[in-house]
Simulated assay, not measured.
Amino acid sequence: MNVLFLQTAAARAVALGLMLGAVLAANVQAAPVAEADLRAAVAVAQPERAVLQAVTRAGARLVAVGERGLALYSDDQGKSWQQARVPVSVTLTAVHFASASQGWAVGHFGTVLHSADGGKSWQRQLDGKRAAALALAEVEARAKVAPAGDAGVAKALANAQRLVADGPDKPFLDVHFFDARRGLIVGAYGLIFATSDGGQHWQSLAAQLDNPQAHHLYSIAVGGNAVYLAGEQGLAFRSTLGGGPFQRLSTPYQGSYFTAQADEHGNVLLAGLRGNVYRSADQGASWQQLTLPAPVSVVASSRSSKGMLLLANQAGQLLASSDMGQTIRPLATPPLPPLTGVLQLDDGQLIVTSLRGVLRP
């Protein structure tokens, strides 16, 4: 979940845009340009070298997503990449496939995309305007049956009204589908939605979370019969695959957790700002802090089919654990740019996404 990267890139883009605008304004009247959520991603000569945010599997295929609506796919284990057809130009932050063909990607402007052909083409299922309206409708329904003067509902209503007033600018930051029909997405300002029909319809689950300040939700992790959420200011939740309510977990760290992993044995790992990593062996009831080689923010993680846990940080370092975080070791790799995603293939080959594209270190 790479909000820090996106903010830095956005700041540079704004600065450059202001300079160019000052030069051109005196000579040329620019033609109106559609917002990024209304125009298709343009073809890029070398999309594998662009800023990419996440990579995943779609069966034997690899799929990566990133800035300006870029979605790429590779059928040769990441040696070469092709650009997919995408109807938006917003930054895409996360991608997940429930099967070799059925996948979903999320990103800025409240964007949710669906692919039915293994990532070759994508169609929009949700946008920020509709997401905000759904969030408001959910709170308004609660307000009708809540006791008069309920402070929690009043706060939730104010947050939802603000979402609508702000417009469709809030990003989704992670997505997970349990199968081809049931999925979950989370994002900035406490956004959380679920679907039970493959994304045709979405329902806000904000009422299930003890998150009155609408803190950002960065990551979804699934292990065994449990679902975990991780976010800013030490925010963490646990629920069940059966759709039970989300229980807020008490964690020792009050900073941001950007990524989470879990396994079928009740082990959970939360990692984030300044290299803070915490491990639980009892589904989040208690936590142990882990020590990393450097206090650098961990922004991405993954687990291989063989159970290998991988962490990636902003310094371009990769860390690995074969025992779900009990011991962590740095991997010997060539110098890498700031990383945003990591994946290990069945043959041990690593695939990473970064500010300089997708790499095979």
Rank of each mutant, 00 (worst) to 15 (best):
T195I: 05
F177N: 08
G223V: 00
A160S: 13
V153G: 08
P212G: 13
K155L: 13
H216N: 13
P168D: 03
G187I: 02
G167A: 14
L229Y: 01
H215S: 10
A236C: 11
G199V: 07
G223R: 04
L157D: 08
R162E: 12
Y218P: 00
G243I: 11
Q161T: 07
D179E: 09
Q161A: 07
D179V: 02
A230N: 03
V227N: 00
L229M: 08
F237L: 07
A158T: 06
L209A: 07
Y228P: 00
G199Y: 06
H216K: 12
L235D: 03
D166Y: 00
A156W: 00
G223C: 04
T240A: 08
A206P: 00
I192Q: 03
V227Y: 01
D166W: 03
V175L: 14
H201A: 14
W202L: 07
L241D: 01
G242W: 06
G167P: 07
A156K: 02
A188M: 07
S219T: 12
D166S: 12
F172W: 12
H201S: 15
T240P: 01
G244A: 15
A188F: 01
S219N: 10
E232R: 06
L205H: 10
N159S: 12
S219W: 08
V164L: 09
R238Y: 06
A188T: 01
Y218F: 15
G199R: 02
D169E: 15
A194I: 02
P245K: 13
H201R: 15
G198Y: 08
N159W: 06
H215W: 13
A160G: 10
Y189V: 01
A194L: 08
L173I: 10
H176R: 14
A188W: 00
N159D: 13
D166T: 05
P168G: 11
Y218N: 15
G223M: 05
V227H: 00
F237A: 06
G244H: 11
Q200N: 13
G244W: 13
P212N: 12
F178A: 12
V186K: 01
I220V: 14
H176V: 10
G183S: 08
Q208M: 14
L235H: 02
A226K: 10
G167S: 14
A221Q: 05
I192E: 02
W202F: 15
R162F: 12
Q203W: 10
N225C: 00
L235G: 02
P212E: 11
D169V: 15
L157I: 05
